[in-house]
Amino acid sequence: MTTSRRQFFGQAAAVSAGVALSAPAAEALANGAAPDAPGLVEVAFKVNGERQKLSLDPRVTLLDALRERLGLVGTKKGCDRGQCGACTVHVDDRRVLSCLTLTATLQGKEVTTIEGIAHGDELHPVQRAFIDHDGFQCGFCTSGQIMSAVKVVEEREVRTDDQIREAMSGNICRCGAYPNILEAIKQAKES
């Protein structure tokens, strides 16, 4: 049996939390809420086409709900302050920052994450283009870059290199893969 790094840390956290807390209390803490906090809110929304119903503390951001409650860890937490773009997802078909979105505001909304853009085994053209052009180094910003790029590719008024750079300026890459990201987006625009 192989254990991924994420599974290992998850199990280790559960074991250490189990010493002092019941499972629901540990979950509440993991989501940033005090144990048995009053005022949980019910939110029914769709994520990648699947209906989800969550009962959560109103402080829980979409980013934390995706990662900690729904196990969709493709969306990354970079700055958690709306400054880096790593957490970019689509809500009702618009690119937004999941770290500044409270899940409680998403009643009836449709969320798409990096896990939801491929068709089965067939990558989205933007995913394909990022691989073709090596549009990343460490990869941490990549899911946010791709989710942003998917929308930039659809924007017809964004044509020139400078316009693409400007449209993508909300996604920071500290490895500096920008030239390859630009080439990937140009390829995806052409296809």
Partner: peptide
């Protein structure tokens, strides 16, 4: 009042704004 949240959620995380009720006006 909470609209886009780009200021309010940011500043609530920093404890700069500490409303005891948030009203979603979206």
């Amino acid at each position: 009042f909470l609209a886009g949240g780009t200021t309010l959620v940011d500043l609530m995380k920093l404890d700069v704004m500490t409303p005891d009720r948030v009203i979603d006006v979206n």
